[in-house]
């Protein structure tokens, strides 16, 4: 079954990279957003199954956005894709409700592996 994906990242280049890799991985991009505010606005109409979430973004950062999206749809699956490489940030993101954490830079294989782990709960 094709899963509905939302990509949240302030970089157009990263949104494109994630989109290309995960479209080839049987996912359909239903929405993108460049910051947390846009993400909250665009989330409801599309009701994605999975979200990739950057953390450092203008206007509303990724941690606050995770909190808001989890309130709207508690069972949403969230893979954080961030350059913030310290363990404390990863733990914080998981505590907020993300289920996976992938550190930038990443290859397409890193991304699809992380997504597979997220979806299978491995």
């Amino acid at each position: 079954m094709e899963l509905k994906l939302m990509i949240i990242d302030d970089s157009n280049v990263i949104r494109g990279k994630i989109s290309r890799a995960l479209t080839r991985h049987n996912m359909r991009v239903v929405a993108t957003a460049a910051n947390g505010e846009e993400a909250v606005d665009r989330f409801m109409p599309e009701k994605p199954d999975v979200v990739t979430m950057d953390l450092t973004m203008p206007r509303m950062d990724g941690l606050e956005c995770i909190r808001k999206l989890k309130k709207i749809k508690p069972d949403i699956k969230i893979l954080v894709v961030s350059a913030l490489a310290d363990k404390a940030t990863a733990i914080q993101a998981l505590k907020e409700g993300a289920q996976g954490f992938l550190c930038k830079p990443f290859s397409d294989d890193d991304l699809t592996d992380a997504m597979d782990e997220l979806l299978t709960g491995a």
Binding site: T56, A85, D86
Partner: peptide
């Protein structure tokens, strides 16, 4: 891309400098 490279490099530096090495957009 220039912004994203800078963001990635500074963000990765937190592995060494710790959680209180705060980075801007």
């Amino acid at each position: 891309l220039a912004g994203e490279i800078a963001n990635t490099i500074a963000g990765n530096a937190r592995l060494h400098f710790g959680h209180d090495f705060m980075i801007s957009v």
